[in-house]
Design a protein around this nucleic acid. Structure first.
Length: 576
RNA sequence: GCGCUCCUAGCUCAGCCGGAUAGAGCAACAGCCUUCUAAGCUGUGGGUCGGGCGUUCGAAUCGCCCGGAGCGCGCCA
């Protein structure tokens, strides 16, 4: 039996409400907005008063009278217009901490009915260097995958590689233009292929004829031309290797490395279903599905272009069908730049009309862009897009500047320090990405790279490293039963007790920032505890044992939280 | 033109399915290292929540209007 604090407190409220014949729907507690008055508050009396046309304070007092009989509450009061303020006893809270410390899930529940959640993030493309946009998608998606898994769902992450569209034709055209044919293709590595793509990209922007050639080659390639397909396989393989290396460094995991190409055959099926359902329409040489325009004008979904190639809307629909049929998805979640929201609205509506995803929840979680100081999407000095590898390198360079030298005196090897630099640098980048709401973008300040103070990944890593140090230096003490001896300890335990609530809210709202925010405040409370509650100088062995339990529990919870964010926790963290 | 999103402290952001005294980080200022890591802690200052009207006992939160910013709108993905 898991021990979930919110359920226990809500349970107490529910029985009080039920005993008074009040609707239990309003018997919900939440962390108090007024920590000076209470640990938890319940605003149910206010809502009930409106419905039952009674005085909210009178209802509140009736409920309070019941709750006061419960010895777990130190104080129950009705304040203001009818807020129910609940304060737990120190011994009850101490017991919560003991139970959390004794449970490998720290008192967190698991969902009653696990869902299969297909998660689509990353979305890198063949031959293109990964940039900060891919970073956000990967970092956010990876965190949500871990959160889904922790609460008991079955996430399946698919990278959904962009390996099928016009860029392929562009590269092929560019190589043919350079070499006369594709014979040398297999000798090109990722750097050369990327160079071909960049050239092709600027050529197609300037020259409509080049664009047309690329389009024709794309169509023939998709149609199955063996020479083109062979060249494509090389491009894809080399690109996947490069992308995997990028994601390995970031700690972003995928269960499936499928791509748009894998959906190609199913595109024909989508077209057939559309035809069967009478949804397919021929318009300006293209095959389209018209959408409902009664609410607002919405462009139609184009399945097949006038040149015969399928669009990415077609491949997205085909991919939905495959995820439903083959992976048995209950939910499909896309973590893609919010500028693509119209695309997903269109695709989801078409999927509904086609009936290819019955009872499957389709969600687009749109995230904001990474911006420069001017508030516009981040660009490098020469106006290009900041690529991911450069970004990571810049962060590492900054972290390296403040690293101590490897030295037998501090017990650190060069190998450890190199690893630490990576953990801190990547942790800083990822936390930055996860600390605000997904939908809001953030400003990427190069100058702030040297600064790891305040609400940052390294701050939390540092808190963990300090606890590790405490554990090392107090090996002779055995963690014991928790006793609350001061305000800092109480505040820490109270915050710890909200873990389950936080994790499930993050899962329900698909919002890792709920976790990053909680993680930060927990680390903050630990820092205060650290100053107020010494273990070595504790007044008595029992207090020392209690504090050691709190320190260890906090450390374990912080490590778990960072794990849910996809951030690593170094064992030792030193600065020069 | 149509649609979507946003406007909260000097800066970057939380809070938004109505509740009490609107919070944090950075920056600024003042303190704290002979004691478990100062990437830390403690404190101070800083707000017409873009503006207006409305709904409500109660609005940063809900509705409408206005102003400002960004993004997106059939054959790129």
């Amino acid at each position: 039996m898991t021990y979930v604090l919110d359920e226990i407190i809500n349970g107490k409220l529910q029985s009080a409400f039920a005993a008074l014949g009040l609707d239990e729907k309003y018997a919900a507690a939440r962390p108090s907005d007024r920590p000076d008055l209470s640990d938890f508050q319940c605003n149910g009396a206010l809502a009930l008063a409106k419905i039952e046309k009674k005085n909210p304070r009178a209802i509140g007092e009736e409920i309070a009278a019941r709750l006061r009989e419960d010895k777990d509450f130190a104080k129950v009061s009705v304040d203001g217009p009818g807020f129910l303020n609940l304060t737990l006893t120190d011994s009850f809270l101490a017991d919560v901490a003991d139970r959390m410390a004794g449970d490998e899930r720290f008192g967190c529940a698991v969902v009653a009915t696990p869902k299969t959640v297909v998660m689509d993030y990353g979305g890198p493309n063949v031959a293109k260097e990964m940039h900060v946009g891919h970073l956000r998608s990967g970092v956010i998606g990876e965190s949500m995958r871990r959160i889904e898994k922790f609460v008991g769902n079955r996430p399946i992450a698919d990278v959904h590689f962009g390996d099928w569209g016009t860029p392929i034709g562009m590269i092929l055209a560019e190589v043919i233009a350079a070499d006369g044919n594709l014979d040398k293709m297999e000798t090109y590595d990722i750097a050369e292929i990327t160079r071909f793509y960049k050239q092709a990209n600027s050529r197609c922007k300037e020259d409509p004829a080049a664009k047309e050639t690329a389009r024709q080659i794309t169509a023939r390639f998709q149609d199955g031309d063996p020479v083109y397909r062979k060249a494509w396989q090389h491009i894809r393989r080399v690109s996947v290797e490069a992308v995997k290396e990028n994601y390995r460094e970031l700690g972003v995991h995928f269960d499936l490395w499928l791509g748009e190409s894998d959906a190609h055959e199913t595109c024909f099926e989508i077209k057939r279903i559309a035809e069967e359902k009478g949804l397919l329409e021929y318009s300006d040489g293209a095959w389209i599905i018209r959408l409902d325009e009664s609410n607002k004008p919405k462009p139609p979904v184009i399945l097949e272009k006038s040149d015969g190639g399928f669009t990415y809307q077609a491949t997205d629909l085909a991919t939905i069908k495959m995820r439903v049929d083959d992976l048995h998805a209950d939910e499909i979640i896309y973590f893609v730049d919010k500028r693509q929201s119209l695309h997903f609205e269109q695709v989801f509506e078409a999927a509904e009309k086609l009936g290819i995803a019955p009872n499957v929840k389709l969600l687009h979680i749109g995230f904001g862009t990474v911006n420069g100081a001017d508030g516009k999407p981040f660009k490098t000095r020469d106006g290009g897009v900041m690529n991911l590898a450069d970004l990571i390198k810049m962060s590492k360079d900054k972290v390296s500047e403040s690293m101590p030298a490897a030295d037998p005196a501090n017990g650190l090897t060069q190998e450890y320090i190199d690893h630490l630099v990576e953990q801190v640098a990547v942790g800083a980048i990822k936390f930055q990405d996860l600390k605000n709401n997904i939908a809001s973008g953030y400003v990427f300040e190069l100058d702030d790279f040297a600064n790891f103070d305040g609400k940052t990944g390294p701050y939390i890593q540092y808190a963990i490293a300090r606890i590790n140090s405490i554990m090392r230096k107090n090996k002779n003490i055995t963690p014991g039963k928790v006793t609350i001896t001061n305000a800092e300890e109480r505040a820490l335990v109270l915050r710890l007790s909200q873990l389950n609530n936080v994790v499930f809210r993050a899962a329900a709202e698909l919002e890792p920032s709920i976790i990053s925010d909680y993680t930060y405040t927990l680390a903050q409370l630990f820092s205060s505890f650290y100053n107020a509650s010494p273990i070595m100088g504790a007044a008595g062995a029992e207090i020392a044992a209690s504090r050691l339990t709190l320190a260890k529990l906090t450390r374990d919870v912080l490590v778990k939280l960072l794990e849910l964010l996809g951030v690593e926790a170094p064992e030792i963290m030193l600065k020069a």
